[in-house]
Design a protein around this nucleic acid. Structure first.
Length: 851
RNA sequence: GCGGGUGUGGCGGAAUGGUAGACGCGACAGACUCAAAAUCUGUUUCCGCAAGGAGUGUCGGUUCGAGUCCGACCACCCGUACCA
C-alpha cells in the first residue's frame, strides 16, 4: 500500500478492537476506575456533527484514561421515549416502537464507524421494558418513602400535544416541543417532592467544583432562594373563615410604605368571592384567559379589582388598607398574597398609579431630600439608603441590613416570622401520552389509589394502539386499563398517565453500572463505578436534566438504590459548544428566502454561487439545522475522508466549550494532514540514517509533545493538543535524526494520536513495529530532563521595549546574564551611555534595562 | 429590567504579569511538472524602500514590564423574567 486509505484502514482496526474486547468495562478493584459519560442521544434516526463532536470529546477522555491505567466505563444508550415517536405514528402510520427501534438501529450503524471506545455490551434504550420496569419499581419505592404524591394542581396544558408540561418545559408561554400557546387547566397529577430538597440542592452546588460556574449559577437562580417575612393581616368585612390574610414579603423594611394588599386570582379568598359575586367571577375569568403567553405577560397592564375588604396594618390597627385581586400575583409563590409598597416596587408603583393609591416613600438616597417619585426607587440591596419611615435598625443602612432588622423586630413583636422561600416547585411528572413509562398504580373504587405489586412489574405498554385521534391511546384502549386491585382483588383501572421522559434520563447513568441487573442497580457495581467522573453534554440541559438527576440520585439513595457518595452523581461536567456552518440563501420570486445545502454551493473569491452560477447570499455561521439547510452529514464526511478526519476536525481549532465552524476547506486540510502523517510514517519505516547529534533534539521535541498533548487533554483544551501534534509533525518531518530515533518518535506520535484519530494511530503503530494494539499501550511519559532546554534565548528590553535578544546557557546565574546583556551591541546602542537605573533579570524569561 | 459571558491578523484561535499573533485555514511566491493536481520550500498584523513606528473593543490607572490586574465605558452573544 502506498497511500493513506481510511476506507481500508478504519474497518480493519475496528474489527481488531472488537475481537480483542478492548473496550469492555471490567470491574477491577486493583485499578482506579474512571467513568466517562456523554449525554445519551434521542434516537432521531440520524447522527449529526454535534453528536460527532460530543462523542469524540468523551472518547478522547476515555481512551486517554484507559492508556493511563484506569479501568474505564464508557457506555452508550438511547433516550428513547417521547413525543416524536408518537408524532411519526400520527403522520406516517406505523408504531412508535417500530419507529424508535428502527431509528436506534440506524443510529447505532452510523455511530459505530466513528471508532468510539464504547462498551456496547451495556447498551440499552429507556423504552426497553427491562429498563422502564426498574424505573417503575423505584417509583413504588419512592411512593412508599413519601417522595411521590398526587395532588390537584393548575397545570400547563399543551393543547397540541394534549398533555401536561412542567414549568421548565414552558418556554415563553409555549410548549417546548409543540410551540403551542400553553393553557391553564386543573388536573390531578403525580409529583416528585423535589422542593423538599431545594435548600440542599442549592447548598450542594457549592461542592460541584468541576462544574461550569455558569451552570451552577443557572441552577441557583432556578431554585431561587429568598429570605423574607411571612405575617398575617387581620381583615375587616371579610367573609367568614377569612379573618386573616397571610402575606409574604422579602422587603419587610418597607412595611410602613404599604398602601394596599393584593391577592392572586387563584387565592382561596378570590375563589370564595368568585362564587358569590358575579363581578369578581368575571374579572377572575378574564385574568385566567390572559394566561401565560409571553405577549400577554409583557404587555398586560397591571389590573386589579377592589374587593371592598380591608386589612389592618400590623403596626397600627387604625390604619386600614384596601384588598385587591390583582392579575400579577402568582398563587404558587409565597402565600399568593402581598402587601403593596408602591414606592419601592415597580409593579406596585404602576398599580398604585393606576388606582390612585398613596405612594409613601420609606427611604431615599443617602442625604437627598424627600421628593415626588416618578418611578419606584429600587436601589441594590447592598447600597446604604436613608430611612424616612424605618422602624428597625439605623436611620442610614443597607436594604439587606434593614430587612434583617425588620424581621427581628417583627418576630419580637409577634408580627410574623422570618421564612426562607424557594421558587423551585415540585416536579409534575404525569403525561397524558402513550410512548412513556407507565405510572404503576391502580385506581380501585373501594381502595382508592393503590400501588401495583412489584412482582407484576413491568407494567408493559400495549402494542395494539392507534394514533388516528389526538389524546392518550392508553385512555381509549379497550382492555389495557382493566386490572385487579392489588389490594382487594376487585376489578380496578390502571393509571393511564405515563412519566415525563426526564424521569428516564434522571438515572440512566446509574443503570449503566449494571445494565442487566434484576434490580434498578447492583450495589457492588454502583459502588465501584459511581460517580460519573466526567460528564459531557450540551448547555441546554443546564437546568432541567441536571437538576432532576441531582434530585433523583438523592431519592435513589434514600430508597437504597445508590450509595451515599452518589447523591451528586456527576463529579465533573463539561458543556461543549455547537458545530456551526454558514447559511446559503437565495430568494424566490416573492422575495421569500430559499436555503441551499453546502454541497450545492461553489465558493469563489467574491462570494458563493449555485452550480448554475446564481449568486448566493452567505449568512454567517449558525447552529446546523435542517430548516436552514446548513448541515453537513457526518456519514458523507466519513465516506469521503474517513472517521478520523471527522474526529480530528471537530477537535481542532476552536476550544471545546466554544462553537466550531465546519468548513469544507478545513475538512480537506484535515484529511491532507492525516495523509501527511501517514506518509511520513511510511517513509520513516525505510529510513536507514545512522544515529547522530540530531537524535537528542528529536527526543526533546518528543518530550515536549507528550507534555503539551497531555496537558491539553487533561485541561479539556483539545485544540491545544491538536496544535501540539501539528508542531510535532513538522519537527519530525524536518528532523535529520537517525532512523531508529525517528521510529521511536513516530511510535510516540501514534500513542498521542490514538485518543483523537484511533484508526490512523493503530496503522502507524503497526508500521513502526509497536507491540499489540496502540489502544492498549500505556500513555507515554515525558522525560523531565528532556523538557529543560540547555540554552535559552532571552529578550532584552530597554524601558519595557524589546530591543535585542541574547542566548545563554539555561543555568547561567543572573549576574552573568546581566553582563552579557549589557555587552550586547544593540543594547549598548540603545542605552547610548545613559546610566542604568534598574536591571531586572527574570531567569529563563526576560531582561529589562531601565534607564 | 436582572444575571452571566465574550471582544487579539483576512478567518479559527495561542500566550504561569515577561519576545503578542503558537498551531491551523486562507492568500502569495518559488521548486517539481509539457501542464494541472498532489507534494515540498518560503512569505504572510498594519504603516514604511528602509531605519523605525503603531498595534489585543474605547478611555484611564497600577507596574521595570499589561492581551493578562484594577476602574469607567462601548459593542455583541447567551440565560432569565410579574417570584412580592
Amino acid at each position: 500500500m502506498s497511500r493513506y486509505d481510511p476506507a481500508e484502514i478504519e474497518p480493519r482496526w475496528r474489527k481488531a478492537w472488537d475481537e480483542a474486547g478492548v473496550f469492555t468495562a471490567r470491574r477491577d478493584p486493583s485499578r482506579p476506575k474512571y467513568y466517562v459519560l456523554e449525554m445519551f442521544p434521542y434516537p432521531s434516526g440520524r447522527i449529526h456533527m454535534g453528536h460527532v463532536r460530543n462523542y469524540t470529546m468523551g472518547d478522547v477522555v476515555a481512551r486517554t484514561k484507559a492508556a493511563q491505567g484506569f479501568s474505564v466505563l464508557h457506555p452508550m444508550g438511547w433516550d428513547a421515549f417521547g413525543m416524536p415517536a408518537e408524532n411519526a405514528a400520527m403522520e406516517r402510520g406505523g408504531h412508535p416502537k417500530d419507529w424508535t427501534y428502527g431509528n436506534i438501529r440506524d443510529m447505532r450503524d452510523q455511530m459505530k464507524p466513528l471508532g468510539l471506545s464504547i462498551d456496547w455490551s451495556r447498551e440499552f434504550a429507556t423504552c426497553d421494558p427491562e429498563y422502564y420496569g426498574q424505573q417503575q419499581a423505584m417509583f413504588l419505592d419512592m411512593l412508599e418513602a413519601g417522595l411521590v404524591y398526587r395532588k390537584n394542581a393548575v397545570v400547563n396544558w399543551d393543547p397540541v400535544d394534549m398533555t401536561v408540561l412542567a414549568n421548565e418545559q414552558v418556554i415563553d408561554g409555549k410548549g417546548w416541543r409543540s410551540g403551542a400557546a400553553v393553557e391553564r387547566r386543573e388536573l390531578t397529577q403525580w409529583f416528585f417532592r423535589i422542593s423538599d430538597y431545594s435548600a440542599e440542592l442549592l447548598a450542594a452546588l457549592e461542592g460541584l467544583k468541576d462544574w461550569p460556574e455558569k451552570v451552577r449559577l443557572m441552577q441557583a437562580n432556578w431554585i431561587g432562594q429568598s429570605r423574607g417575612l411571612q405575617f398575617a393581616f387581620s381583615t375587616v368585612d371579610a367573609p367568614e373563615g377569612f379573618d386573616r390574610l397571610e402575606v409574604y414579603t422579602t422587603r419587610p423594611d418597607t412595611l410602613l410604605g404599604a398602601s394596599f394588599a393584593a391577592i392572586s386570582p387563584d387565592h382561596p379568598l378570590a375563589k370564595h368571592l368568585e362564587r358569590h359575586d358575579p363581578a369578581v367571577a368575571e374579572f377572575v375569568a378574564e385574568c385566567r384567559r390572559i394566561g401565560t403567553s409571553v405577549e400577554a405577560l409583557e404587555t398586560a397592564e397591571k389590573r386589579g379589582m377592589d374587593t371592598g375588604i380591608r386589612v389592618r396594618h400590623p403596626f397600627d390597627t387604625e390604619w386600614e388598607l384596601p384588598v385587591y385581586i390583582a392579575n400579577f400575583i402568582l398563587m404558587d409563590y409565597g402565600t399568593g398574597a402581598i402587601f403593596g409598597c408602591p414606592a419601592h416596587d415597580q409593579r406596585d408603583f404602576e398599580f398604585a398609579t393606576k388606582y390612585g393609591l398613596a405612594i409613601p416613600p420609606v427611604f431615599g438616597p443617602e442625604g437627598a431630600e424627600e421628593a415626588e417619585l416618578t418611578e419606584a426607587f429600587v436601589p441594590p440591596k447592598d447600597q446604604p439608603v436613608q430611612y424616612i419611615r424605618g422602624f428597625a435598625g439605623d436611620e442610614v443602612q443597607t436594604g439587606a441590613a434593614a430587612v434583617d432588622a425588620a424581621i427581628a423586630f417583627c418576630e419580637a413583636q409577634a408580627v410574623g416570622r422570618g421564612v426562607t422561600n424557594y421558587r423551585l416547585r415540585d416536579w409534575g411528572i404525569s403525561r397524558q401520552r402513550y410512548w412513556g413509562c407507565p405510572i404503576p398504580v391502580v385506581h380501585c373504587d373501594a381502595c382508592g389509589v393503590v400501588p401495583e405489586r412489584k412482582e407484576n412489574l413491568p407494567i408493559r405498554l400495549p402494542d395494539d394502539v392507534t394514533f388516528d385521534v389526538p389524546g392518550n391511546p392508553l385512555d381509549r384502549h379497550p382492555t389495557w386499563r382493566n386490572c385487579a386491585c392489588p389490594s382487594c382483588g376487585a376489578p380496578a383501572r390502571r393509571e393511564t398517565d405515563t412519566m415525563d421522559t426526564f424521569v428516564d434520563s434522571s438515572w440512566y447513568f446509574a443503570r449503566f453500572t449494571s445494565p442487566h441487573a434484576a434490580t434498578p442497580t447492583d450495589a457492588a457495581e454502583a459502588d465501584y463505578w459511581m460517580n460519573v467522573d466526567q460528564y459531557i453534554g450540551g448547555i441546554e440541559h443546564a437546568i432541567l436534566h441536571l437538576l432532576y438527576s441531582r434530585f433523583f440520585a438523592r431519592a435513589m439513595h434514600r430508597t437504597g438504590h445508590l450509595p451515599a457518595k452518589a447523591i451528586e452523581p456527576f463529579n465533573a461536567l463539561f458543556t461543549q459548544g455547537m458545530v456551526t456552518h454558514e447559511i446559503y440563501m437565495t430568494r424566490d420570486d416573492k422575495g421569500r428566502p430559499v436555503y441551499h445545502l453546502p454541497e450545492d454551493i461553489q465558493r469563489s473569491e467574491g462570494g458563493a454561487t449555485l452550480k448554475d452560477g446564481t449568486a448566493v447570499e452567505v449568512i454567517p455561521s449558525a447552529k446546523m439545522s435542517k430548516s436552514k439547510k446548513n448541515v453537513v452529514d457526518p456519514m458523507n464526511i466519513i465516506a469521503a475522508y474517513g472517521a478520523d478526519t471527522a474526529r480530528w476536525f471537530v477537535m481542532s481549532d476552536s476550544p471545546p466549550e466554544r462553537d466550531v465552524e465546519w468548513t469544507s476547506s478545513g475538512a480537506e486540510a484535515t484529511a491532507k494532514h492525516l495523509a501527511r502523517v501517514w506518509r511520513i510514517a511510511d517513509e520513516i519505516t525505510r529510513d536507514e540514517t545512522a544515529a547522530n547529534d540530531a537524535d537528542r533534539d528529536l527526543a526533546r521535541a518528543t518530550a515536549r509533545a507528550i507534555a503539551d498533548v497531555t496537558a491539553g487533554i487533561e485541561g479539556f483544551a483539545f485544540n491545544k493538543s491538536v496544535a501540539a501534534l501539528y508542531a510535532f509533525t513538522n519537527t519530525l518531518s524536518k528532523s535529520t535524526a537517525g532512523g531508529e530515533a525517528k521510529r521511536d518518535a513516530m511510535r510516540v506520535m501514534a500513542q498521542l494520536l490514538q485518543p483523537m484519530v484511533p484508526h490512523l494511530a493503530e496503522e502507524i503503530w503497526a508500521m513502526q513495529g509497536g507491540t499489540g494494539l496502540v489502544a492498549q499501550a500505556p500513555w507515554p511519559k515525558a522525560d523531565p530532563a528532556l523538557l529543560i532546554a540547555d540554552t535559552v534565548t532571552l529578550p532584552v528590553q530597554i524601558n519595557g521595549k524589546r530591543r535585542a535578544e541574547v542566548t545563554v546557557p539555561a543555568d547561567m546565574p543572573a549576574a552573568e546574564v546581566e553582563k552579557i546583556a549589557l555587552a550586547d551591541e544593540a543594547v549598548i546602542k540603545f542605552i547610548a551611555g545613559q546610566p542604568v537605573k534598574k536591571l531586572i533579570v527574570v531567569p529563563g524569561r526576560i531582561i529589562n534595562v531601565v534607564i
